[in-house]
Design a protein around this nucleic acid. Sequence first.
RNA 1: CGGGGAUUGGCGCAGCCUGGUAGCGCGUCUGGUUUGGGACCAGAAGGUCAGAGGUUCGAAUCCUCUAUUCCCGACCA
Length: 418
Amino acid sequence: MKLSQYFMPTLRENPADAQVPSHRLMLRAGMLRPVASGVYTWLPFGLKVREIVAKVVREEMDASGANEIFMPMVQPASLWQETGRWDKMDAELCRIKDRHDNNFCLGPTHEEVVTDVVRKSLSSYKQLPVMLYQIQSKFRDEVRPRFGVMRGREFMMKDCYSFDVDEEAAMNSYNTMKDAYHRIFKRLGLDYRVVKADSGAIGGDLSEEFQVIAETGEDELVFDKEGDYAVNVEKHDAETCGVPAERLETKRGIEVGNIFYLGDTYSKPMKAVVKHSDGTERPAIMGCYGIGICRTVAAAIEQNHDENGIIWPEEMAPYQIGLMNLRVSDDTCTEIADKLYDSFRALGFDVLYDDRDEPAGAKFTSMDLVGLPWQCTIGPRGVKEGKAEWKNRKTDERFELPIGELPDALQAKAKAAA
RNA sequence: CGGGGAUUGGCGCAGCCUGGUAGCGCGUCUGGUUUGGGACCAGAAGGUCAGAGGUUCGAAUCCUCUAUUCCCGACCA
């Protein structure tokens, strides 16, 4: 992508309203613009990152045997009355009326809708298991939206629901999802922990959270440095955890994913039942599994940034290479940079090409801000010697290579792709 | 929902206490000089000071209400 043709309005100064790093940097890097409290427009650069997260999530969901569907954001009150949540939930559930004065809500989650879909096509235990997921907008009228997209009111979420014949099968689905979640967050290159959690308003009795470690996290976690023990600090009990105090560590985390074993909390009241081999009719046993797509993007920035800007983990980087032509008015520089742009792309890389007629300093500063893993600089100084200058954003390692040659790390990638 | 801030050109801010022609930096536009970490010179455009009401000869400034927004807490995925 040529920067001269890209709508990526970067900000030189910090917006006054943005306090946490991810919010600040997403605004400054031209990823995001506020529309209302907790409601945002995603600009091309931000959207591209979000799509990468969604793609990884989608691939791992599909690989786990889940099927993608797409449910409506607008949902009839009648379904929510079946489970009692229409009355139980407070103002967080945004209720609306249509022209006929019928009650609807904006979906804060989709248990009711998905259970309704499944029950209508379900009759025999032989049809199970069923696992359905979607990637879609949710609306929760938060008491206090904050930290940009970390706690927005409208946000993109992957939500998956499993229906099984009995508890044992449901636990299988649960564990399948848990494995998928591990693969997702590993692929995204994030430092995270899995912690036991309360299942809250969703119901059910087993639940774990995937928490990305970051100083600005809303949750405080206690975990064993050497073992698996990890809980939210509210649930931590030093007496019963069985881990010596010196091995325990406390860090803050951002909840990016959660998995719930639901049992028949929804299937029973909504009569999502199947006939078993013994002739009895019993509710399907459910689980639900969420990943906050927007929040994952923000969490990645919280975890990976410095005073100059974002530092994207390899896998999440919207472009692997940021190419800079320092002297657009110099025909040789421009010719070389144009050629490199084409050849990098031909090798399978996504390239952000700063071809604007701007001072060199502006280019360096904004390239650091947007945080692409590799920067390749073409300027009169290097061109004289046939060299391009490379910089690794994360390590700040800088070196020169003959024009057209790739750093080892990228060369390996190009080969792997070919 | 309780508490505390904020609201003045696109962005960041000053002016308010002590009422008297709305300012600065950045950005934008024009022209020129430049060109390796947001360069320099000259010129220009752009604001009914969040809204409504009140006090006053006169309100960005004082008073009241409203809206929006941010932060802390409670709550929450």
